[in-house]
Amino acid sequence: MVTHSEMTPPPVGLPPGAAALRVEVRSFLAEEQAHGHWRPRVDSWLSGWDERFSKELGRRGWLGMTIPTEYGGHGRGALDRYVVTEELLAAGAPVAAHWIADRQIAPSLLRFGTQEQRERYLPGIASGEIYFGIGMSEPDSGSDLASVRSRAVRVDGGWELTGTKVWTSGAHHAHAFFALVRTAPAEDGNRHSGLSQLIVDLHSPGVTVRPIPLLTGAHHFNEVVFDRVFVPDSMVLGELGQGWHQVTSELAFERSGPERYLSTFPLFAAVVGALAEGDPDRGRRRDLGRLVAHYRTLRRMSVAVAGALDAGAAPETAAAVVKDLGTRFESEVIDVARWLVPVVPDPAAEGGLSRMMADAVRHSPGFTLRGGTNEILRGIVARGLGLR
């Protein structure tokens, strides 16, 4: 059972220099848009793949911020990274290429990886030149990660991997991913035992990546099939049999960040801009105020979790709360936006409010699914509170 402090991490303040860093990032983003390099979009951390942009962030020192300098990073804190991430998402910038690697792969390598693994991957993550996916979910398993059927069997010099992973964002572009697989039978009915994580080169013989297109026609999800793929012993992440513990620690980074409530912020900003051109009535001003209040509350919670992570904690329960509330709120933003500024979503539109509305509506069914369904997350919270 978690303690009250683990369930509700204490509020934290942003570090000295955060305001200047924010101004610097905003200035860069404004310059990028002025030159027409990209247009703001909703869900940019999944749908905005732009390797040029990621490499530019790396050049400016805004990737790998929490990676130690000995591995090519910048040795800064998680809250500095939070400021940069918040500005990128609020602007709807194309961050998908580096997103997973910078958000959760790098911290996991620092916590569980070998020296060889760190030296191989961390410098490229910090420079925006190495991209990762996540190999957790499987067909017919939903959010029940413990039911994985992908198996790795011992062979000379490593492991032979067979199985399938789904919803692997960016796998068709990524260099590698972390795969949660079974390396030993479950013991005494404990399905969490016998699971391990392997670092799989997605260009290895036997790996097939199949696209899973969205209703919008966009392609960032994939099915990845392993047909007797060889993974050397050097690419086992952490300890054999400890995959479940490692994955749950990793999910704290995935579930608590600002992307869990800012995916639809570019739409909200466009709605505010449209309303500012007129004279919104009292009801619309009230609904705007309510959304802003919710944003502020979720941000405070998310920053508190970032502070706990920065201090070396693993607040899985608090992260689950942020994800549950944040992703439900993202859909609420769409519903309120349609009332505030009625537009007909036009998928063929090239930009502007109509296009963002169309993308938001079509992406919204996935908000409460990715990173674990909200029903699963509520079970995590209940167990954390000792209620089940």
Rank of each mutant, 00 (worst) to 15 (best):
S169H: 01
G326F: 03
V236Y: 00
V231G: 03
E138S: 07
R355T: 01
E330D: 11
D80H: 14
A101N: 01
L122H: 00
M235G: 00
V207N: 08
F265V: 10
Q242W: 09
L288K: 07
T373M: 11
L46K: 00
R149K: 14
A252V: 08
A91W: 04
S27P: 04
E316V: 14
T85Q: 14
E6A: 12
G72E: 01
V341T: 06
E6P: 04
G13R: 13
V225I: 13
R284I: 06
M301L: 15
G238L: 04
I212P: 00
A270T: 01
G135Y: 01
H4Y: 14
R151Y: 02
R286N: 02
V247L: 13
V12P: 11
P139N: 09
R39A: 12
E250D: 10
S364P: 00
R299M: 06
A269F: 04
R26I: 03
T297N: 09
T373N: 10
G278Y: 02
S249G: 15
G278E: 11
R41C: 01
A152V: 04
R299V: 02
H294C: 13
M235S: 07
E350H: 11
F367Y: 15
S169P: 01
L14E: 12
G124E: 08
S150G: 06
D324N: 14
G158K: 00
R228Q: 13
M7P: 01
G75T: 05
A304W: 12
G386C: 11
R154D: 00
G283E: 10
R285I: 11
E316F: 15
L215R: 14
V200P: 00
A314T: 14
T162A: 10
R286E: 14
S44V: 00
A274W: 03
G163K: 03
L262N: 03
V207I: 14
P232N: 08
A304C: 12
P266C: 04
L195I: 08
H245L: 04
I105T: 06
F230C: 01
V209E: 02
P345Q: 08
R182I: 10
V209M: 06
G77N: 12
L240N: 04
S196E: 10
G372W: 08
L251S: 06
W339D: 03
G307L: 08
A34M: 13
L387W: 15
G371E: 06
G289S: 12
S354G: 05
G48A: 07
T373V: 02
I130D: 02
V153D: 08
L88W: 10
D324R: 14
S354K: 04
S263E: 07
W49V: 12
G289Q: 03
G278P: 02
G170Q: 05
G36R: 09
E119C: 05
V225N: 02
R370P: 00
F253V: 05
V292T: 13
I199G: 04
F226R: 05
R103C: 12
G351D: 15
H192I: 05
A18H: 11
L202M: 10
V84H: 12
G142D: 11
S143D: 14
